[in-house]
Design a protein around this nucleic acid. Structure first.
Lengths: 193, 193
DNA sequence: CACATTAGTGAACAAGTGTACACATCGCTT
DNA sequence: AAGCGATGTGTACACTTGTTCACTAATGTG
């Protein structure tokens, strides 16, 4: 799995990886592959599972550092960017998988995103934010937020890790996106019900 | 190019296509490939160019049908969904290319999206909508809109063409996303400047 | 200690891959 | 009608690919 991630990190697309290529990168003979996975799709699914862990770690850190802050959005985006840098290959895999070749991987990633969105909704409820929104509308909002951040991911991953200027731009832009969304959510239903 | 699109339409990922595979689908001998393209990346780039045409056609139709409507957003989303269905393979290619293997294709698609966003901004200006926004903020809004729609694309393309219920759901959800964004844009700067 | 499980090995095979080269056709313009 | 450029063909070569099978080394449990 690390070998596959490493190749993805080097710019390859997961869908174009072959068994021999992965085992070569892992420093192991091709046949060994079958000791662990039935095929590449299987490997992809296990990567999705591990991706879940990465996301959960990120959420935990966000919750710990953000709760007492007044710049909630800005801080969260910062943490997200930091994690995306630290786990570049994982997030690359995630971005690829969204439109990937394996239906199962695709669905897995989508489901991780849904989970993330619902956790975000819970947090907002706990913080007594957006209390005027119905549960469904809060879910809607959080879904939109998660999508927006996920899209920023593709921006982030296409600039080199040390291009601090561009990274800063992306962070600012993403922050504004979210501010605009929450601004809309704040006025939702009050005048569009 | 049609052969490559056809394969993508059948669920393959562009990055995993080979020259022989494409020529086979095209009903042509492998060597013929080199009469038209230097390699698969080159083919991808030419597909991006043609994608540009598809998008422009879509914009034209949207402009023609939407201008006199009061349900601007809903209509636009409808037209988008219709075009995404009609040119399924093209949009699949677009969704794949965003996190694809070829940097050039990636940049090409991104640039098409930027163009689309800027055209949208022009239209809004012409319609005298969102006049309280600075040019930069209007661009920001349109970028966010285009991203949101593009993300809905991945939802749309992952359900089968004849699942009208799901397609309707996606259409409704996307419409609400855009309504929320424009609602936020409507209050932007007035209370967050 | 013995034994079963797990992870890794090496050789083998049929099939598929990208690319090169010389040759054949077609349609167009002069 | 002649010639030319663009497109397609057939053959060939050196690799790479997925998967199989029987075998070996390490691991931890009774």
């Amino acid at each position: 799995m690390n070998a596959a991630l490493a190749l993805v990190g080097k710019g390859r697309h997961f869908a174009s990886l072959g068994i021999r290529e992965v085992t070569r990168q892992a420093g192991v003979v091709p046949t060994s592959f079958y000791r662990h996975f039935r095929n590449m799709d299987d490997l992809g699914l296990q990567l999705v599972d591990e991706l879940g862990l990465v996301l959960r770690r990120m959420m935990r850190e966000a919750r710990a550092n953000v709760l007492q802050s007044d710049k909630l959005i800005e801080e969260s985006v910062g943490i997200f960017v930091a994690h995306a840098q630290a786990n570049r290959s994982f997030f690359l895999f995630m971005a690829q998988g969204l439109a990937g070749e394996s239906r199962a991987v695709q669905e897995g990633i989508r489901s991780e995103m849904r989970f993330f969105a619902s956790e975000l909704a819970n947090d907002l409820r706990r913080l007594r934010l957006m209390e005027h929104l119905s549960d469904a509308d809060l879910d809607l909002t959080c879904d939109l937020v998660v999508r927006t951040v996920a899209f920023s991911l593709t921006d982030l991953l296409s600039v080199s890790t040390d291009d601090d200027y561009q990274i800063g731009q992306i962070r600012k832009r993403t922050t504004r996106f979210l501010q605009m969304i929450f601004l809309g959510a704040g006025h939702w239903q009050s005048d569009s019900a």
